[in-house]
């Protein structure tokens, strides 16, 4: 019963996204702008570097950025801040008066809301990449990249809810969204493939959950057939989902407890 409720929440949220085409146009437009800028940077870098950088050709880098940017740009940028504000202001209270846990419904609606935007971005991004750089290198790894992108989004949304739940205790926790995003940008490999980082950085970044949120699907999209990445992502996603649920459960106890 709970699962069907969550599925319904996700589809309703997806419908809400589709009911606001203006916003969708802005986010796809924004996505194409970033993708165009960052892919141009990397393509000219590859060209200046004898055709490839850390094993990535210009074509591979283009598909890398198309995937890595989509996983992040399709989401609400200030998710941590917005959820944190709703916790801090008490706007979340009515959700505690439902038979399904608030965090479950929230995760489901957020994922549901992102998916249509994600699809739109990916279609636009794939079109752009095919146009300026050419078809993807290996269809097998592209096949893996699609589920990987969804996992990346789910993992990221769950992690952001776990961070936002700190607002049950600390008033300014919601400002963490800025820092969080910078980690995704660099340690997560969104702007820069992890192989390009200095070796010590790279090995640290591979151990962090952020690599599951951008690098993994981007690596697969760039033509490397590495199914192990999906397993790592699945693990991190599970960890983040458990963390979000646990943080919310503790936070709700804190919210309702006597002083």
């Amino acid at each position: 019963m709970t699962w069907s409720a969550l599925a319904r929440a996700a589809t309703t949220a997806a419908r809400r996204t589709l009911a606001q085409p203006g916003l969708a146009v802005v986010s796809v437009g924004f996505y194409l702008l970033v993708t165009a800028a960052v892919t141009s940077l990397w393509r000219s870098a590859a060209e200046a570097h004898g055709g490839e950088i850390a094993g990535y050709s210009g074509l591979a880098l283009t598909w890398y950025i198309v995937a890595s940017e989509a996983t992040v740009v399709a989401q609400r940028v200030r998710l941590i801040e917005e959820v944190g504000t709703e916790i801090g202001s008490g706007a979340i209270e009515p959700e505690l008066l439902r038979p399904v846990a608030a965090v479950g419904v929230r995760l489901a609606t957020e994922i549901g809301a992102v998916l249509p935007r994600l699809v739109a971005c990916l279609v636009a991004g794939a079109g752009y990449a095919a146009l300026v750089a050419g078809a993807p290198i290996a269809t097998g790894s592209i096949g893996l990249a699609l589920p990987s992108i969804v996992l990346a989004v789910v993992c990221n949304i769950a992690a952001q809810h776990a961070v936002a739940a700190a607002s049950f205790w600390v008033r300014d926790a919601k400002s963490a969204w800025y820092l969080y995003h910078k980690f995704v940008f660099i340690a997560g490999g969104m702007l820069i493939p992890l192989e390009v980082l200095p070796e010590s950085f790279e090995s640290v970044a591979r151990l962090l959950p952020f690599s599951a949120m951008a690098y993994a699907p981007a690596r697969l999209a760039s033509g490397y057939f590495e199914p192990g990445l999906l397993i790592g992502q699945a693990l991190w996603t599970a960890v983040m989902l458990v963390a979000a649920v646990a943080m919310f459960a503790r936070g709700e106890r804190r919210l309702t407890a006597a002083p």
Binding site: M1, R8, T12, R15
Partner: peptide, 11 residues
């Protein structure tokens, strides 16, 4: 549309 979601949440 919202009722469909809330209804599902309440089983």
């Amino acid at each position: 549309q919202s009722y469909r979601m809330l209804g599902a949440i309440f089983g």
